[in-house]
């Protein structure tokens, strides 16, 4: 295609966009709604991931060691644990550190601290806090802890107790909640996305349906398919770009308003900071989705009327 044809397509597209202002406005509004849904899903995904991550982070399995266990044995056991594929991290707390933490936790509880002092020695045990890559893997880790063969001989005689059994119900419930929340979240995202894309497709198809007679006349004067389709596709692209910018503009005050709320209720994620921090990615998603929708919908809608 030569430059003159491109120039004519662009000019014709601009003129058609402007002269069919009502159809253009309707299509722009519909596409803005669709892109807003897609953008909201971007934020919803972020809130979901952060919140679930925050909850997951609160869960761990602790292994307590006999007071007689040496630090060398415990650290050797820690290294064995870290080799398990299900384990994300292992944190060692010595008896001394456990005592410091205990005192700090109960600094306003004089009675407890007095009782501790009367004991005369440190009653607390050294421990390892184990975090799994996924909450569903705690059971596998707990089984490994109870089996000498899985971790070699390093645990023999030094492990006093593992708190998994006590926490099992809570961990199982949490695993189910996280899994359901994720499935539900993604299902909602998929449904909303499909629905809004279909609405945009239909709107653009209707906008082009209005021009079906025009297209058949263009065919009868011998215009090539590219010459006919070009301006419609360009208008679709304009819908995408303009609606994309509208949507990004809309999210500015919206996230500014919602930011403090989400920060308070959703484990510290501030949507406004997230919007600014991920603007480039959001821009590509929103404007890219807009262009893709506008161009694809126009292409298919015009194709239908080119069969003259």
């Amino acid at each position: 295609m030569d430059w003159v044809s491109i120039e004519r397509i662009l000019r014709s597209g601009f003129v058609s966009f402007w002269r069919n202002w009502f159809v253009s406005l309707t299509s722009l509004l519909m596409m803005t709604v669709t892109l807003s849904v897609i953008g909201s899903l971007f934020f919803l995904g972020a809130v979901l991931t952060t919140t679930l991550g925050f909850i997951k982070d609160k869960v761990d399995v602790s292994v307590y060691f006999h007071p007689t266990a040496s630090e060398t044995d415990i650290l050797s056991f820690k290294r064995s644990l870290e080799t398990l594929p299900e384990v994300s991290s292992v944190e060692y707390t010595s008896r001394e550190q456990a005592l410091v933490d205990f005192r700090k936790r109960h600094e306003n509880d004089q009675l407890t601290l007095q009782a501790l002092d009367e004991l005369g020695e440190n009653p607390l045990e050294a421990s390892l806090g184990i975090k799994a890559k996924d909450p569903s893997q705690y059971e596998i880790i707990a089984r490994s802890l109870q089996s000498d063969t899985a971790l070699g001989k390093s645990s023999a005689g030094i492990v006093d107790r593992v708190n998994y059994v006590q926490n099992k119900t809570a961990i199982d419930n949490l695993t189910k909640i996280i899994s359901s929340a994720r499935t539900f979240g993604y299902a909602v995202i998929a449904i909303l996305m499909v629905a809004s894309i279909l609405i945009t497709f239909t709107t653009i198809r209707l906008a082009i349906y209005v021009s079906r007679d025009e297209i058949s006349v263009m065919k009868l004067v011998g215009a090539s398919n590219t010459h006919i389709r070009g301006p419609f596709i360009f208008v679709g692209l304009m819908y995408g770009v303009i609606a994309g910018f509208f949507t990004l503009l809309l999210f500015f005050p919206l996230t500014l308003w919602l930011g403090p709320v989400t920060e308070r209720f959703f484990s510290g994620i501030n949507l406004y900071d997230y919007y600014l921090g991920n603007f480039g990615q959001l821009f590509l998603i929103i404007v890219g989705a807009g262009i893709f929708l506008g161009v694809t919908a126009s292409f298919w809608a015009v194709k239908r009327y080119l069969q003259v």
């Binding site: 069919n20 025009e214 263009m218 004067v221």
Partner: peptide, 17 residues
């Protein structure tokens, strides 16, 4: 005729084609 085009543009379109 193409309703969104002027008389001039209607004729010009056939020439562009």
């Amino acid at each position: 005729l193409l309703p969104q085009k002027t008389a001039y543009e209607n004729i010009a379109f056939a020439m562009e084609a």
